Each structure stands twice: as C-alpha cells, then as structure tokens.
Deep mutational scan, measured.
Amino acid sequence: EVTIKANLIFANGSTQTAEFKGTFEKATSEAYAYADTLKKDNGEYTVDVADKGYTLNIKFAG
C-alpha cells in the first residue's frame, strides 16, 4: 500500500491537501477522480507530478 499526496491549489490562492491510499494505480486514479469532481466549481486543472508520482500538485484555473 502506498499513499499519494495531492496538493490542491485553487485560483483564489487557498490550498488543501488530500491523501489517497491503496496500490499506486488505485490511489493515483482516486486522486485524479477527486480533482475531476472539483473541476465543476473550480475550473480546469493542471497537474505537476513530483516525488516520482507520489505527490501531485493540482492547480485549478478558477
């Protein structure tokens, strides 16, 4: 089991951190699915992958 950390960075400057656990593939998939649910209210997003994929910096356009 691994932990994927998602740093969520919103257009208004606020930030939030979420963690997803499971296999690497499952946790990564859940992180992207979570970002997709936030897209409606926060706009499109870009992802900067860090720490060999264990950290995702997800920035929303607003």
Score class of each variant (00 low, 15 high):
Glu1Gln: 14
Glu1Val: 15
Glu1Pro: 11
Val2Met: 07
Val2Pro: 07
Val2Leu: 09
Thr3Trp: 08
Thr3His: 08
Thr3Cys: 05
Thr3Ser: 13
Thr3Tyr: 05
Thr3Ala: 10
Thr3Leu: 09
Ile4Ala: 01
Ile4Val: 08
Lys5Tyr: 13
Lys5Trp: 10
Ala6Tyr: 02
Ala6Leu: 11
Ala6Trp: 02
Asn7Lys: 11
Asn7Val: 12
Asn7His: 13
Leu8Gly: 01
Leu8Ile: 15
Ile9Thr: 07
Ile9Arg: 10
Phe10Ser: 04
Phe10Glu: 02
Ala11Trp: 05
Asn12Ser: 04
Asn12His: 03
Gly13Ala: 04
Gly13Met: 12
Gly13His: 12
Ser14Val: 07
Ser14His: 11
Ser14Leu: 12
Thr15Cys: 03
Thr15Met: 09
Thr15Lys: 14
Thr15Asp: 12
Thr15Glu: 07
Gln16Thr: 13
Gln16Ala: 12
Thr17Arg: 09
Thr17Gly: 13
Thr17Tyr: 07
Ala18Gln: 13
Glu19Lys: 14
Glu19Met: 08
Phe20Trp: 05
Phe20Ile: 03
Lys21Arg: 11
Lys21Leu: 14
Gly22Asn: 04
Gly22Ile: 00
Gly22Phe: 02
Thr23Gly: 08
Thr23Trp: 06
Thr23Pro: 07
Thr23Lys: 15
Thr23Glu: 04
Phe24Leu: 11
Phe24Asp: 02
Glu25Cys: 04
Lys26Asn: 08
Lys26Val: 08
Thr28Asn: 06
Thr28His: 06
Thr28Arg: 09
Ser29His: 13
Glu30Thr: 13
Glu30Trp: 09
Ala31Thr: 07
Ala31Asn: 01
Ala31Phe: 03
Tyr32Phe: 13
Tyr32Thr: 09
Tyr32Asp: 01
Ala33Val: 15
Ala33Gln: 07
Tyr34Gln: 03
Tyr34Trp: 15
Tyr34Asp: 01
Ala35Phe: 15
Ala35Gln: 00
Ala35Ser: 12
Asp36Arg: 04
Asp36Cys: 03
Asp36Gln: 07
Thr37Gly: 10
Thr37Tyr: 14
Lys39Val: 08
Lys40Asn: 10
Lys40Met: 12
Lys40Gly: 08
Lys40Trp: 05
Asp41Lys: 15
Asn42Gly: 09
Asn42Asp: 09
Glu44Leu: 14
Glu44Ala: 06
Tyr45Arg: 01
Tyr45Asn: 01
Tyr45Gln: 01
Tyr45Phe: 09
Tyr45Ile: 03
Thr46Ile: 12
Val47Leu: 07
Val47Lys: 02
Val47His: 04
Asp48Ile: 13
Asp48Asn: 13
Asp48Tyr: 11
Val49His: 14
Val49Glu: 07
Ala50Tyr: 05
Asp51Lys: 04
Lys52Gly: 13
Lys52Pro: 04
Lys52Ile: 12
Gly53Met: 04
Gly53His: 04
Gly53Leu: 03
Gly53Val: 02
Gly53Pro: 06
Gly53Phe: 03
Tyr54Arg: 07
Tyr54Ser: 07
Tyr54Ala: 05
Thr55His: 04
Thr55Gly: 03
Leu56Gly: 00
Asn57Pro: 00
Asn57Tyr: 12
Ile58Ser: 00
Ile58Gln: 00
Ile58Tyr: 09
Lys59Leu: 14
Lys59Phe: 08
Phe60Ser: 00
Phe60Asp: 00
Ala61Asn: 12
Gly62Ile: 04
Gly62Val: 11
